[in-house]
Design a binder for these strands. Structure first.
Lengths: 124, 124, 124, 124
DNA sequence: GTGGTCTAGACCACC
DNA sequence: GTGGTCTAGACCACG
């Protein structure tokens, strides 16, 4: 479980955790059935409150990416690979749509965006 | 001054105003030297608090897009057209970079992003 | 807002709140657009922690029954009447299905259940 | 002794056991006097802790459905058939009453519940 | 004033 | 040991 959190980020801590674990699941770095650290353990590791780690797990459970069994712990849900692939694309497509929408408002053409994309991709 | 406010949006009201005025300036819909509605007037138009419209203008002034002259009002800064064009691109490039960075983390290739971009652009 | 909570109930407090507000919405006692008490106010009224009232509202928001606007408050979502009617039936149908399933396991016939239902309905 | 345990269920394991054994007794699948597996044996079969199987038996004993004789084992209590029949009905009637009570709160009429019951019974 | 986030600490049920 | 619930109190952004 490699998770890095920034206290100075605008993004809430629990969201940072959700995003990173979500990414590890949809990319297959965390496999179905694999146990996650207990909320207390994670809280210790990241030096945050138990409440905050719990909240992250709750959100992941709501998304169906993990299952939490009371008194036992939390585990990565077993999911179809295609399903994960779809999710992976969906995450980006959604965010891309927001940017593209504003780009259109600013009168930027598709061709310009394509050039921008190539540039940004190499630098990223 | 066409500005549309959504009270139920997660985006703060002052941010909605900033974004919309900023876009109108960098696209040239608002020309350099043009007067903006007074803080009070804008607040009345949008049915929001004066504090909120004030905060929006402060932010725009910080970005150098408008100037406020005490006792007279606020005006769009006169800017080089190339400069505006750069700004317009910069706004999008910045946001695009964030999305592309996460896409890379998720192992999505440039080619896939390009296809996604075309799709999203047409739908947007 | 008539809400009664029992500290001695097995049902968590936030669930009691969710259930009662949900029922008031789907039955039309709380109309679309109507403001709900602030989480702090509700906490005071019910003599519970702010966290607990907040949690209830979060759940209701997740179900799409209310909308919460940061810094303003929470409001009942405007919903189609048919939609609400469906929800009202769905809530009961789901719970009824659980009971009927176990009744079948116990070898109780439909006719017996129908008699039981009449009896129970009058006593309830 | 056919018992199926789900670790991921919200229902506690000991409750799952209690419910299934109870149902087998009140339906006559387990006859009065019949020996039950020992606590240790049951724990082995179901791959659970001895504490859990013990707790299940304790609960069943409290309900008067089984008797445990120290050093010998546990046996199904001998009960009048009418008594069992009553119990069988009582279990369902109790649960049905809870659902019907909420249905009344939601303004659902007896006739509607009867229709719902027929539908649900066939699907169950 | 409002909600959003985070903390530290507590008690409970289950295993 | 685990998670589930609840508390009291804090700081922040927004309006």
């Amino acid at each position: 479980m490699d998770i890095i959190i920034s206290n100075s980020s605008q993004e809430p801590i629990y969201e940072q955790i959700v995003r990173q674990i979500r990414n590890q699941i949809v990319t297959g770095r965390l496999q179905g059935g694999e146990p996650l650290p207990s909320i207390r353990n994670l809280a210790l590791q990241l030096n945050i409150s138990v409440i905050t780690s719990k909240r992250a797990y709750e959100e992941l459970e709501r998304e169906g990416l993990i299952v939490t069994i009371g008194g036992k712990g939390s585990y990565v849900s077993s999911q179809n690979k295609d399903h994960l692939r779809e999710k992976r694309y969906g995450i980006i497509e959604e965010k891309l749509a927001v940017v593209v929408k504003e780009a259109k408002v600013l009168g930027i053409r598709l061709q310009e965006l394509e050039e921008m994309l190539k540039l940004v991709y190499e630098e990223a």
